[in-house]
């Protein structure tokens, strides 16, 4: 399996939070290489099931949605004004190439007042979203004929770049790199007999109201669930407590995680000789596990994270080997689920 190609296919699709349909369609195709048991739900989640249907259910989620924008207003001159759907940092937008997803895809740029025309004081300030315009350079009539308030705007759908030494850079590695990791996990489990009922889910709206995680958990009623998402890697200015090293698989320990699941995942990581590290997070983990944990009558959750630099930009950086290690750990964990799973998760010992 060519993981870089999978990442490239997935990240060049538009899938702003709440409108992940295009990603789900392509993911369905990838899932079908491993199973015919593939389906969608009301939230737009895309699922694939493998393993033993009679066994305990493990739900694995990586979210398909990306941070993005919506057209909020169209000016008389055809300039578009934007609203953040979820997670967009307006400071990284000026000078960006974007795509407007109207009746057709329209290339556009994000413009701002040049420094020459700003007062000395304003030059020191960050642009806010209301200061920026999205410029298609098309005549106003053509804009109005093709674009409506509510249409999505994404970063330009450029394929990722291969940097040196196994690093790659691109848009939407958060979290489609982990969707690719999920597919690589399926590849690793292709010839493995599983005791568990293993459901993979490309989830929706993680960056926003987290609809996918709650809907997905209620629809599959899992016994165990693992969110696979990205975390921060070392980067200029970041404190050591805020990141994990690039070559380490992060295992979250904290309130969104079941302690026994965590310990079990650590044991699997150690047995597999995978370079993993404990990543403490008290409170909201900022992953699908937050909602999965409290769905139905409660779910035993774990979180595996892939270190990433420059989160929520068009140049997110990850390392391919660490991505593979996330998948190896996940596959080994699923394979380790046996008859004794309930005892392993029992908190009264």
């Amino acid at each position: 399996m060519d993981i870089f190609k999978v990442i490239s296919d997935l990240t060049t699709l538009p899938g702003v939070t709440g409108n992940e349909v295009a990603v789900a369609e392509v993911l369905k195709g990838y899932f079908r290489a491993y199973t015919d048991d593939v389906w969608l739900d009301v939230a737009g989640n895309c699922y694939a099931r493998i393993g033993n249907k009679e066994g305990p259910t493990l739900l694995v989620m990586a979210h398909m949605d990306e941070v993005g924008l919506m057209v909020s207003d169209i000016e008389d001159n055809g300039m578009l004004r934007l609203h953040s759907v979820a997670g967009v940092d307006p400071r990284v937008l000026p000078g960006s190439e974007v795509t407007v997803h109207g009746k057709k895809r329209i290339p556009a740029v994000i413009g701002a007042m040049p420094p020459h025309l700003l007062s000395a004081e304003d030059q020191k300030k960050n642009y806010k979203l209301d200061d920026l315009v999205c410029d298609t350079a098309l005549p106003a009539e053509e804009v109005k004929a093709n674009v409506s308030v509510g249409d999505n705007v994404t970063f330009a759908l450029c394929p990722p770049m291969e940097l040196k030494n196994g690093f790659i850079a691109g848009k939407t590695f958060d979290d489609r790199a982990c969707v690719a990791a999920m597919l690589y996990t399926m590849e690793l489990l292709k010839n493995v007999k599983l005791n568990c009922n293993l459901i993979f889910c490309g989830s929706t709206q993680e960056e926003g109201p987290n609809f996918g995680a709650s809907c997905g958990s209620w629809n599959t009623a899992p016994d165990m669930a693992i969110a696979i998402d990205v975390c921060h890697a070392p980067q200029p200015g970041a404190k050591s407590t805020d990141y994990v090293e690039f070559d380490q698989v992060s295992l979250t320990v904290g309130s969104n995680v079941n302690q026994k699941m965590y310990e079990w995942m650590c044991d699997v990581g150690t047995e597999m000789n995978i370079n993993w590290v404990a990543d403490p997070c008290m409170g909201h983990s900022g992953t699908d596990a937050h909602r999965m944990q409290v769905a139905c009558a409660g779910v035993a959750t774990g979180i595996i994270s892939l270190p990433l630099r420059y989160m929520h930009t068009s140049v997110e950086v990850i390392h391919m080997d660490t991505l593979k290690n996330c998948a190896k750990l996940l596959a080994a964990f699923a394979a380790s689920i046996g008859e004794d799973w309930e005892e392993k998760l029992c908190l009264d010992d």
């Binding site: 739900d41 009301v42 939230a43 919506m70 909020s72 609203h83 409506s148 308030v149 509510g150 109201p209 609809f211 709650s214 809907c215 209620w218 629809n219």
Partner: peptide, 20 residues
């Protein structure tokens, strides 16, 4: 078309209830 810039509605609560 409407994008409400701040404030929520029952729309979201109904969307996320149970199985969605």
């Amino acid at each position: 078309n409407e994008i409400l810039r701040s404030g929520g509605t029952d729309t979201g609560a109904a969307q996320r209830a149970g199985k969605g």
